[in-house]
Amino acid sequence: MARTTSHKITAWEDVSSSIANFQLAAMLGWQDVAQRYRRSSLGAFWLTINMGVLIGALGLVFGTIFGTPMAEFLPFICLGLIFWGYFSQIINDGCGTFIASSDTMLQLPVPFFTFILRTWWRNTIILAHNLVIFPIVLLIFAQFVNFYALLAIPGFILVSLNLLWVAVVLAILCTRYRDLTQIVQNIMQVGMYVTPIMWMPNHLPGKASALMMDLNPFYHLISVIRNPLLGDPGTGLNWLVVTAMAVIGWIVALLFLNRYRSRITYWL
């Protein structure tokens, strides 16, 4: 296991060695979740209970306001809130990833992307907890997913790729500019209202949809993972935008990480 560090570790090496040693990221991420179980037997399911209550309450209120049948609206808002929680938690946690891991980063030359993967893995486990609400909602309304549900798997992969590059860029920027975290939190909060989470796309008058949906990256992200589970494959534009964002985003993120990687420990 000889190692030579005569040159700067490139972003590519950092990312590929982190992925090769994914078991470290997975273990750390799992520990984060396990901590919730240590003093309470319900553990991370407390988050699920909170989420369930939120879905029930918001579903009833907004479904009634919009006059949408509950059988249609409740599964919609259920997936919307669960996936939005996943997006915003990864992005918000992403900002503080390096700051929270500074003890380790200042001592062991662990590749930095490992910590991003840890954040992603932790939130993915919590997502898996929350997703148990969905079959319950379907059961209440005696509905089933159709064949398109399988598309949620590539959808999830594309969404994850996008969230990961955003987390890389934000983790670097937020380590340098500490007040950026607040700005990001703000954006995510506003994003929840301008993205069709609590309202359905067909509630919008025709003109507004271009701005609030087609130009909204979150709309495309949530569409490729929510729509398949609701029995609709999503539009070609959704898939195109999400794929393009993943490719371009990762190129930017790798260049960015490459440029600033050796500075990050100095900013901690």
Binding site: M1, A2, R3, T4, T5, S6, K8, I9, M105, L106, Q107, L108, P109, R261, S262, T265, Y266
Partner: peptide, 16 residues
């Protein structure tokens, strides 16, 4: 130990 990358100069490490 590879935590800080030198601002200037070089370091070559052979070994774990």
């Amino acid at each position: 130990s590879g935590v800080y990358h030198p601002s200037a100069g070089d370091i070559v490490i052979n070994g774990k």
